[in-house]
Design a protein around this nucleic acid. Structure first.
Lengths: 205, 205
DNA sequence: TGTACATCAGTGAACGCGCGTTCACTGATGTAC
DNA sequence: TGTACATCAGTGAACGCGCGTTCACTGATGTAC
């Protein structure tokens, strides 16, 4: 992290990276602009050359997280093709994998309290991420008998909620840690039961 | 909130109530000991007659929340008897109802970052609350054909995660607000599909 | 290749603020006799 | 019923701290000629 002279070179991204690291280590509460500046080897005042303030820095960290998140979800979806079922299951797994691999981003996105509608750019990338899951759900719903087919938006919401709950309760420092099952197993089996309930997989799969 | 003289009468509980109100209004981050004291009509220093400090006050708020939570879950369970299915579904609904009715407690419990193992009393009441759900799951698993019966701890974890995810994403200020379905509908239908997947309710229920 | 100068990205000192916490204190309450 | 006194629950002033933010500044860089 040593400077290469008076000018940093890429301070903006260095600050985002520092913020992500601090948010991961201390939670969104513990994160301070001053400390991020210090970690990037720079005076707190320098931050204001690149961001409007503390909130703006967090929002950028979250935005980058959603960008990665959307890519990861899209990749999982594509990889599962042409099977609608495989694609859908892959996106569910991708949610947990993302939370595990990018904990700082995840916290900035879901636990820092920044509003999704803070800027149009942020809102757009959030939309892009969730659209992947909704598309996967819509594809899949084609395979459900129409008379018992729930709206795609509804069952993507179910899977999203299940994934989010598993992450929050079992993959992070919350009251659910004592479970004897890994988050991956919980999510996998939960989605399995759910899809069976929709008649999408047989009883013996 | 006016004082009745030099002595408050029930300052301890008044501080907890103030804390709950502030936590609900401003999030766990925004809550300050000084403000809670002010709201209770008292000097910040007075708080230290009743609590060890800021953290201790939040922990007590969370403890009272778990106490209520456990009671609510137990009540729902009892009310669903003797039907194992009705009892289980009722506990799921009770989770969401609790989050709605006691948002301050809910935040103190699940979003304030206090550790469940902070004190033995806290750990005990947390245990009591979750045991209700696990018992409901265990009762219900008796009705599943043994060869496809998942461990009770696993499927209570599924329902817990689903409930928690629905609350976090759709019943509070998170990125999921735009869903066209109410949290109650989402949870109800999600649990329905899940139980159908376990073979516990028929395709036409 | 060298010089003048505009632009940019940082510094460092200072600010006001509210925080959690401590301390010696004092007013109110309850009890013993 | 009245007085002395211990105990309790509050006050209010003070503290050190780190925060986010501002400001005038200066060192480094890049470009025109």
């Amino acid at each position: 992290m040593r400077k290469r002279g008076y000018h940093h070179g890429n301070l903006r991204q260095a600050l985002v990276d520092a913020a992500l690291q601090l948010i991961e280590a201390k939670g969104p509460t513990g994160f301070t602009l001053s400390e991020a500046a210090k970690q990037a080897g720079v005076t707190p005042a320098a931050v204001y050359r690149h961001f409007e303030g503390r909130e703006d820095l967090i929002a950028e960290a979250a935005r980058q997280g959603y960008e990665i998140f959307a890519d990861v979800m899209q990749y999982a979806y594509d990889k599962g093709q042409p099977s609608a079922l495989a694609a859908f299951e892959a996106t569910g797994r991708a949610y947990l994998a993302f939370a595990r691999k990018y904990p700082g981003h995840y916290i900035a996105m879901f636990e820092s309290g920044i509003s999704v509608n803070r800027t149009p750019e942020l809102a757009a990338v959030v939309r892009r991420a969730w659209d992947v899951l909704e598309n996967a759900a819509a594809d899949l719903s084609q395979h459900i008998p129409p008379d018992r087919r729930p709206p795609a938006a509804m069952f993507s919401a179910h899977i999203w909620a299940l994934s989010h709950g598993v992450v929050e309760l079992f993959a992070r420092n919350s009251p659910g840690k004592q479970s004897p099952f890994s988050p991956e197993d919980l999510l996998e089996s939960g989605i399995g039961v759910y899809l069976r309930g929709l008649g999408l997989i047989g009883p013996d799969d």
